[in-house]
Design a protein around this nucleic acid. Structure first.
Lengths: 189, 189
DNA sequence: CGTTGAGTAAACAGGTCTGTGTAGCTACGA
DNA sequence: TCGTAGCTACACAGACCTGTTTACTCAACG
């Protein structure tokens, strides 16, 4: 059972609060005091669970970096479904762009450990695309995976700045075109 | 002649300094004191030229928002050249992503005037794409322009986080494919 | 039943931030 | 030549930041 004193539950509560505040208001805009107060936790407790704000930032990004799953469905289905789900996400109240891009933008120092977390996540997602398009037998899966990742990141940026969730459809259609073209070439080869 | 007392020259010096610091280190990471010191100007003078840091931020973004030009060259040439020039820009030492996306990410408040500047710039660049693809007589110029803008924004984000300027080539190739496909359909119609 | 681990509240240290106030210097125009 | 606009230097107010310290409370466990 997880009692009120459960350490991991406390950590999770702090982390979920930090996630919401960091993501919606920006990492630098949110102080440690606010995170502790919103989590209903004393500042001392927060510092007992995370040695510094930087460590909290890294944990926040790591928590966001859950890898996507690969199923037995057709690759095109899985990829296009990702794009189709974007629009609803963009329309959510708390949507504020890509947390990894935002973190890199906010943290000027190139040595900040958060940058590595962001880079790894983007690489992992690109690998997810690549694994799927490899199953399609396309000519250049690395290139196609990169291009699909570009469309995804571009849609997120455009939705953040432009505020119109419908850009997701343009991204989906472009992805569909890229996939169809690559597939046709693969079949004909 | 522009003397040392020339007001507009002073404004420009402050603004160029703010541009470099805000862009490379982040808006929130750079204080007004630093901008004044690096510009070789007293803080009092800075505040005589810009009423607040927010005003300086807005001026910084407005200065970045120079509209792209349209020439008589073939639309495809102009568009692809934009993508081809990306790689060199990504490889520059000071490259730090899209200043407009970064600003929106850093400034949590949705009412900040910088957001409007960013939104206008993105809309203007999308319009640049649209004007060009309309000349090609494609079926859906609005959609195609949005998709090209997505590829551009995606490439910038990917280059920022991933640190590899070569993503520009993937973006260029995807743009080329979108353009070619749309053109073929336009010709056949 | 007492020790202990983990929490709370609140003050504090030392730094940085935006923005203002004060006092004096300097170059230019009438 | 004198006034003044615009600059400099510097101190300051007041807020906020990260991180620590102090003193206290409370529940679990041997």
């Amino acid at each position: 059972m997880s009692s009120a004193r459960d350490t991991s539950a406390m950590t999770d509560r702090i982390l979920r609060t930090a996630d919401r505040l960091f993501y919606e208001q920006g990492i630098r805009a949110v102080g440690v005091d606010l995170v502790a107060a919103e989590a209903g936790v004393s500042k001392r407790t927060l510092y007992n669970h995370f040695p510094s704000k930087d460590a909290l930032i890294v944990a926040y990004l790591q928590r966001r970096a859950r890898p996507a799953r690969i199923t037995d469905e057709p690759p095109q289905t899985q990829i296009l479904r990702l794009f189709e789900r974007l629009e609803a996400g963009f329309a959510e109240r708390g949507f504020h762009g890509c947390p990894f891009v935002n973190a890199v933008a906010e943290l000027g120092e190139p040595t900040h450990p958060a940058r590595a977390v962001a880079k790894d996540f983007k690489a992992e997602r690109r690998a997810w695309f690549q694994t799927l398009v490899e199953r399609m037998g396309v000519a250049d899966p690395r290139m196609l995976a990169t291009q699909l990742a570009l469309l995804l990141d571009g849609a997120i940026s455009a939705a953040l700045v432009g505020g119109d969730p419908k850009v997701a459809r343009a991204a989906r259609d472009a992805a569909s075109l890229l996939l169809t073209t690559a597939k046709r070439r693969a079949v004909r080869k």
